[in-house]
């Protein structure tokens, strides 16, 4: 009994200290911010309840988008090398094949209407400023036309299944600027170009699942400005599902042994638990002779 009392006192002292230096200190150093919003409710320029017309969307995309963007799933291949594209636009323009799959519908429609406000980058590209975002606003299109474009992009997006989606989504959403050396993945925009375009080399994401961790990434990818005000990383506009795929890929790359760790962990703990029981029985036997 006395020993349990001692143990309780030690547990209390250790517990208080732990609470102070871990949960409490983290709470002070990283205050909670607004929860992630996967409906992108702040974007209201386009009426997304309109049903899009795929055929009209195809006409609009071919007239307005493929001059700069490739759309490989519909047979529009890249027309430039990545180095040339980066030199021309600042950053390699995305292939639109997966746009219909990975971006939230509301975000995508409003992005087409006005990219800078959708990305929360007006501090970097102020209206009438010297620098302009490489993609123009399509605010002259009607809401119906924009929804036609969205419908068309959604119709041509290839089906990806299983774990392949993790890498595919990461490549499409992050891979133009970020490298991930542990996955042997290099940013498609050349290093010097992306550095000039973003103001600094975007970080290698190999260990971001560990250094930033899931909770932070969940909020950060959804809206970088909330957690890192002034960053030149845009709000990408991933749907919740696509964002989970990206984080899953970062985990497969940065913490590839997680499943093994959790499996082995249970066995080791069970082993030591059995050891403790046997040790207790032995101790009782030995000490019965001296008490």
């Amino acid at each position: 009994m006395k020993e349990l009392k001692i143990l309780a006192i030690i547990a209390a002292l250790v517990g208080i200290t732990y609470y102070g230096i871990e949960p409490y200190a983290h709470h002070i150093m990283h205050p909670e911010v607004k929860a992630a919003d996967f409906q992108f409710k702040d974007l209201k320029n386009v009426d997304t309840s309109l049903a899009g017309n795929v055929d009209n969307g195809k006409v609009l995309v071919e007239a307005n988008c493929i001059a700069c963007h490739s759309l490989e799933s519909a047979g529009h291949a890249k027309t430039m090398l990545d180095t040339d594209a980066a030199a021309a636009y600042g950053v390699v323009p995305p292939d639109l094949s997966s746009a219909g799959r990975i971006y939230d519908k509301n975000y995508l429609a409003n992005f087409i209407f006005d990219p800078v406000s959708a990305m929360h980058l007006s501090h970097k590209y102020p209206a009438g400023g010297a620098k302009a975002f490489p993609m123009p606003s399509y605010n002259w299109m009607s809401g119906q036309e924009i929804m036609d474009v969205v419908a068309y992009l959604q119709s041509v997006t290839p089906k990806v299944v299983g774990k392949d989606t993790h890498k595919a989504t990461y490549d499409a959403a992050c891979g133009r600027c970020h490298s991930m050396s542990y996955a042997k993945s290099e940013a498609t925009t050349p290093k010097d170009a992306v550095k000039a375009y973003m103001g600094a080399t975007p970080p290698d994401l190999s260990q971001y699942i560990k250094s930033r961790q899931e909770h932070y990434l969940h909020g950060f990818i959804n809206d970088p400005q909330l957690l890192l005000a002034g960053t030149s990383m845009p709000r990408v506009g991933l749907s919740e599902k696509a964002q989970e795929e990206v984080i899953a890929y970062m985990e497969e790359t940065g913490d590839s042994k997680k499943a093994e760790r959790e499996r082995v962990g249970l066995w080791v703990m069970l082993y030591t638990f059995v050891f403790a029981i046997l040790a207790y029985l032995w101790k009782r036997k030995i000490w019965s002779e001296v008490h």
């Binding site: 403790a276 030995i286 000490w287 001296v290």
Partner: peptide, 27 residues
């Protein structure tokens, strides 16, 4: 005699230690 008791304490401690090693290592 002394070590038999220590082994038991060690066993309990190691369960706690390995819990930290595998599942709670951020600290």
């Amino acid at each position: 005699v002394f070590l038999s008791k220590d082994f038991f304490v060690l066993g309990v401690f190691l369960v706690f230690f390995f819990y930290l090693v595998f599942f709670h290592y951020d600290f």
